[in-house]
Every structure is written in structure tokens, then in C-alpha cells.
């Protein structure tokens, strides 16, 4: 009882990247707490899926395998998870901040009246002292996230309600196999015990899912553009430089909102977290939501004409100038000097 649960989402029948990252972080938090790490998987036709999870140090896999759960739907998934959580009383429950996790998390938290913090960039364990009542809460989950336009970093806690719930974006935590021979226990969930007929009210008519096309996460070199790039047309230069360097193009939220690039290229708290060898930030001011998603890059080059831009303070190289002037020069001198 009172263990740490990770809701493991599936991606074409395999555990999603973000879920494996959460299991990795969950394992180390569970070690700190001295509790077990338990995974929860729902879907259909999932024989053997537990073997893909155990190596991350999972002690128990709760498997709900039923045709009714084949594709994610809010209500049946909520009913199974809230039902299981009522039995198991987890102290912490984590899920990916995906379209699924962000649909499911609030529903579950509302049903259980437990707090939920969205898009955490860090999860830690720590105590909390309340002066008024002279009470110390031990071993709470610190849910840390930028807030209010990224001008502040807030640490959120849920002292009195369980489970303490948080969602985390893909790429924020690192994925790491603990021991490929680690073996936990498989427990099958009796799905029919939790699902009511009215949970099936919403029907899926059709789905068109595309394979992941743009993969900025695994790119070694990223040329990233912000609002300062100025236009979708100007982004063409970034693509040219990226393809020359064997990298990918990414964008800040402001650039995505302005329609300069697609959402799948967005770096930052509400996008993807990247750790490339080289990150070239073009016309990006560097609000914390953006830098939270790229500040672990090996080398950072900032190109902009604002000497006070926050991005400059984390950059290895700051080029003071117009993006439209600097990029063609980078292209020119790369071509001239590369062998």
C-alpha cells in the first residue's frame, strides 16, 4: 500500500517513451521513499507487455487487458484507474503530459479529490513545515514547474490529499534501464468490475494517427527559431542551415503560436525537452519556459539583436546581429570551411 504509481501509456502497443522516463524517475523517488514502484497499463492484446516494464525497476505491473480499452477513452480509463487507486491508495501517481495524460489526469484527480500539478519540470521528495499548526509533513512530492509566463518557478505540494499527482512532458526526465533482469509481479485487473455501461457513451468513429515524422528530441544539432525570426519565410534559412549541419529545426512557443513552425517542433515546458550537442537559438529571447527545454544542450549559440535577452546568459556564444544577416554567413562559412 501507499506506493508510487506510474500510468504507462501505450504508443502503437509499446510503452510510450514518456512513461518509461517516468518509471525511471519513479524508481529513484520510490527508493528515496522506501516504497514500491508500480506500473499501470491499460489496453487490449498486451500479453508480455510487463517484460518491457520490469527492467525499469517496476515491482508490480497492474494490467487491464480488455477490448473495451483498446483505444484511450476518458470515461472507461478514468473508472478503472480511480477504482484501482481507491483499492491501492497510492501516495504518488505520475503520468505523461500527453494529450491522453492531460485528458485523464484532471478527471482522475477530480474524482479522487486529489491535487494535480501539470507539466512539472522536476520532481523531488522533501518535507514541509506549517508554522501555524506546528506540523511537519514528511516526504512530500515537490512538484516543480515554471508558472506565470515563466517568470517564476513554483514548488507545489499536496500535504493532505492522496495520491499526489503530477504530469510531466516527454523528454524532461531521462530514461534508463535499472537492471534488465529485474522481475516484478504481474497483477491482472478485473476491468469489468470497474466499468459502467454509461462510461461507453462517447464512441470513437475513426482515428488517423501519423507516425512521428519530426524528431527534434534525438537531433544532435538543433537550429531553433523564435518570434524574432520574423516570418515563416525567414524560417527557410533555418531549414537550410539545419540540413547542412545534419540537424533539425525547432521553434519557441512564440514562433509556433505565430504559425512559423508546427507544434511538433516546439521546444520548452509545453513542448519537447532537448539535449543536443549544439543548440543555435535564432531570434529567441529565452523565457524560462523555453530555456527549461534546452538548457542542458552541450553548446548554445544565441543569435539576436538584444544584448539583454535572457538567452544570452546561458549561451556559450552570443552573436549580436540580425538573424537574416547571420544565418547566411554561417551557411557561407560552413560551406567554405567544412571538408
Amino acid at each position: 500500500m501507499n506506493n508510487l504509481f506510474v500510468f504507462c501509456e501505450l504508443d502503437e502497443g509499446r510503452p510510450a517513451e514518456v512513461s518509461l522516463e517516468l518509471l525511471t524517475r519513479g524508481r529513484s523517488l520510490a527508493d528515496t521513499l522506501g516504497c514500491r514502484l508500480e506500473a499501470l497499463v491499460l489496453g487490449s492484446g498486451l500479453d508480455g507487455i510487463e517484460n518491457e516494464l520490469f527492467p525499469y525497476g517496476v515491482d508490480v505491473v497492474h494490467l487491464g487487458d480488455d477490448p473495451v480499452l483498446e483505444h484511450y477513452r476518458t470515461m472507461p480509463y478514468t473508472s478503472v484507474i480511480t477504482g484501482l487507486f481507491k483499492q491501492e491508495q497510492p501516495q504518488i501517481a505520475l503520468m505523461g503530459a500527453t494529450t491522453t495524460g492531460r485528458d485523464l489526469g484532471p478527471r482522475v484527480s477530480s474524482a479522487l479529490h486529489s491535487g494535480l500539478t501539470a507539466d512539472c519540470t522536476s520532481l523531488e521528495i522533501g518535507d514541509h513545515y506549517v508554522k501555524k499548526t506546528d506540523t511537519t509533513y514528511k516526504n512530500l512530492l515537490y512538484q516543480i514547474r515554471p508558472a506565470f509566463g515563466g517568470n517564476i518557478i513554483a514548488t507545489i505540494i499536496n500535504p493532505d490529499h492522496r495520491p499526489q499527482m503530477a504530469t510531466v512532458r516527454e523528454g524532461v526526465m531521462k530514461r534508463e534501464i535499472i537492471n534488465k533482469n529485474y522481475r516484478g509481479e504481474l497483477r491482472r485487473i478485473d476491468v469489468s468490475a470497474f466499468i459502467k455501461p454509461e462510461d461507453l457513451a462517447v464512441e470513437i468513429i475513426e482515428r488517423h494517427m501519423e507516425a512521428r515524422k519530426v524528431d527534434i528530441k534525438s537531433a544532435q544539432i538543433i537550429v531553433s527559431g523564435g518570434y524574432g525570426v520574423g516570418s515563416k519565410e525567414n524560417f527557410a534559412m533555418l531549414y537550410e542551415l539545419a540540413s547542412l549541419l545534419g540537424g533539425e529545426v525547432a521553434a519557441s512557443r512564440a514562433a509556433v503560436d505565430a504559425g512559423y513552425a508546427g507544434h511538433e517542433r516546439q521546444v520548452g515546458q509545453t513542448g519537447v525537452t532537448v539535449r543536443p550537442k549544439l543548440y543555435i537559438a535564432c531570434g529567441i529571447s529565452g523565457q524560462i519556459q523555453h530555456t527549461a527545454g534546452m538548457n542542458q544542450s552541450g553548446k548554445i549559440i544565441a543569435i539576436n539583436n538584444d544584448p539583454m535577452a535572457p538567452i544570452n546568459s546561458i549561451a556559450d556564444y552570443v552573436i549580436n546581429g540580425d538573424v537574416a544577416e547571420v544565418i547566411p554567413r554561417l551557411i557561407k562559412y560552413y560551406k567554405a570551411n567544412a571538408r
Binding site: 517564476i152 513554483a154 514548488t155 544565441a302 546568459s313 546561458i314 549561451a315 556564444y317 549580436n320 554567413r329
Partner: peptide, 24 residues
């Protein structure tokens, strides 16, 4: 259920950056 334990101002840690111009 959620409480704000702490709010921190964002202070970016400055690296030693090389400052360059846009010149060739």
C-alpha cells in the same frame, strides 16, 4: 489540495559567453 510551497524568481545562471558581432 495543491498548495504553493515556494516561489522562486527566475535567475538564469550566467555562463561565460563569448560575445561576437555579425561581421564576416
Amino acid at each position: 489540495p495543491t498548495k504553493v510551497k515556494e516561489i522562486e524568481n527566475v535567475i538564469l545562471q550566467s555562463k561565460e559567453s563569448k560575445r561576437l558581432t555579425a561581421s564576416d
